[in-house]
Nucleic acid binder design. Structure first.
Lengths: 224, 224
DNA sequence: TATATCCTGTTAATCATTTATCAAACTTTG
DNA sequence: CAAAGTTTGATAAATGATTAACAGGATATA
């Protein structure tokens, strides 16, 4: 909550969503917006939006609101979308390929530079502009290209082993889609466990017990 | 928190993870486990585990702990894994196919019965055991098969329109992977917006500001 | 069987997050 | 330019979530 101190996880989770909505507003050539208007668009309270933004600095102006373009830019800086973290995908199965094609890494501070798979039959096949390499080449590749982010799309049995190996090669952020709860003891290494299966289960739970939960609004929920 | 009252979203989000860990313990033929042991495995406090489980009833026994098999079964019931919600995927691009192949719907109370895409070239192609149908067939299919869950893997421009159409056809739960914040005004309809892009952005934010956040432990984070 | 140990369910306390409030500051309008 | 209307940033209040504490009941052991 402090302007310099650590930002709470709840706030951080909302930042990308602010960034998206502001991007949309920019496309629609909206110049200014108040916390009240934005709150209506986003299904939040105006108070929360002001509180969140003030963790990072007073971007608004009384009687005016927020300048859409500047706020978008500021949040972009906070999120680090201007960086170019080298990014590799481990596992070129259905999911690995889908993520390679579906996620716009560039607009999120990442540059996808390599895809790896243990299956030698896939070696050489291309996913978009990138050729699949064999897992044995990871060491060589990392020494040359110094990637920072690794996306894990591999079976759970191999996940911890591969992750430990990647830590030694300088990977500092793991985006883990494997059906396994990855933990890295090392400091300064961050992990995001996605667990799509868990996400589906919470959905079906809510579908079952669907007596319009008064607490969480109207049954919408975000996974982030 | 009340035993009958509404369960908080925070608790619900943890249930699938409990379910997974208990499943693993069963595989390892562990018969009983205490909240303390489980808390060490899962990186939670024992207190939280007991608190969470007690939202649903006293499954444990003093001096003994929890019977792994029974607890697994109970949580399964709560999550509704025994149900068979008919499930369809809309959009058979990379992501739609990957989800069809990668997610075990059966073990999560869902039965995947149809995949649809607007692209007529994909019609007839199979994904696992399921043939892709053209989007025009959705109406007919829903009348005959009464699916309840829809997985949206389509561009954001079409998402709201398709969702509204599906609501009329009886869909009551949306698992939305499109780059769009879906909201359904209807009561008794639940939505889970996944937003993989946002998930990546929170990861890179944490990688940037990576001065070992004392609050959230050691930099591990779950998306659920 | 008696004793020491263990562990749950529950209540209380702490901590975190969200919402409400309001003075100060800017914009708009006549 | 003055008055009316907005809207922020900051602080306070309210709500929610997590952790701690502990009595009561079960197990394990000798």
């Amino acid at each position: 909550m402090a302007k310099n101190g650590t930002i709470s996880a709840s706030v951080i989770k909302r930042l990308p969503r602010y960034y998206r909505f502001l991007g949309e507003l920019m496309k629609q050539e909206v110049e200014r917006i108040s916390s009240r208007e934005l709150s209506e668009m986003m299904n939040l309270t105006a108070s929360q939006i002001r509180q969140d933004l003030n963790c990072f600095g007073g971007f608004g102006m009384q009687g005016y609101g927020y300048h859409v373009r500047s706020l978008h830019e500021e949040i972009g800086k906070i999120l680090g979308v201007d960086r170019e973290f080298g990014t590799i995908i481990i596992g070129a199965g259905n999911l690995g390929k889908a993520i390679a094609m579906h996620i716009n890494f560039e607009t999120r501070g990442c540059r996808l530079t390599g895809i790896f798979d243990v299956n030698p039959r896939l070696t050489g096949e291309t996913v978009g502009p990138i050729a699949i390499r064999h897992t044995d080449e990871i060491e060589q590749f990392c020494k040359e290209n110094k990637p920072v982010v690794a996306v894990l799309c591999i079976p759970k049995a191999n996940t911890q082993e591969i992750a430990d190996r990647l830590v030694k090669l300088g990977i500092r952020a793991f985006w883990n889609f494997s059906h396994y709860d990855l933990t890295i003891e090392h400091e300064n290494i961050v992990v995001e466990n996605v667990h799509l299966g868990d996400s589906l289960l919470t959905l079906t739970y809510r579908a079952n017990n669907n007596i319009a939960p008064e607490n969480s609004g109207n049954g919408q929920e975000d996974s982030n």
